[in-house]
Amino acid sequence: MLLQRFLAAGTVLVALPLCAHRACAHEGVGHHGGRLADAGPYHVELVTKDRRVEVWVYDAKEKAVSPAGFKGTAILVVGGKPARVVLAPAEARLTGEAEVALGATPKGVVQITGPDGAAASGKFN
């Protein structure tokens, strides 16, 4: 009995940090099928489709943040050349149009400027 209790407590103690560690990693896909990255106090999800760039902003707890008041710039490298896309709030996301087709997973950086004027950037590889 006592031994079992010990074992259970031990398992919980060991498992907790592991779970916490798992939660840290942001690998994988976001709610809209895009890639996730940390950007200052926020998390951003990047979806590129043809020439359209869409960025969703979440807070640290993965809760969607309204894009009102946000500004954004996405600089994505396509075929060895950087493409700069200005993002503007539209509905629940920030969106913009590039001059060239971007492909599904271009590498680059998304910079967002919050309503308080502080800029933060997230890197996508």
Partner: peptide, 16 residues
């Protein structure tokens, strides 16, 4: 927070 786009020859990179 700045974003720097580096273009050197044929190489381009974006650095936050």
């Amino acid at each position: 927070d700045l974003v720097v786009t580096v273009t050197a020859g044929s190489e381009a990179d974006v650095l936050p």
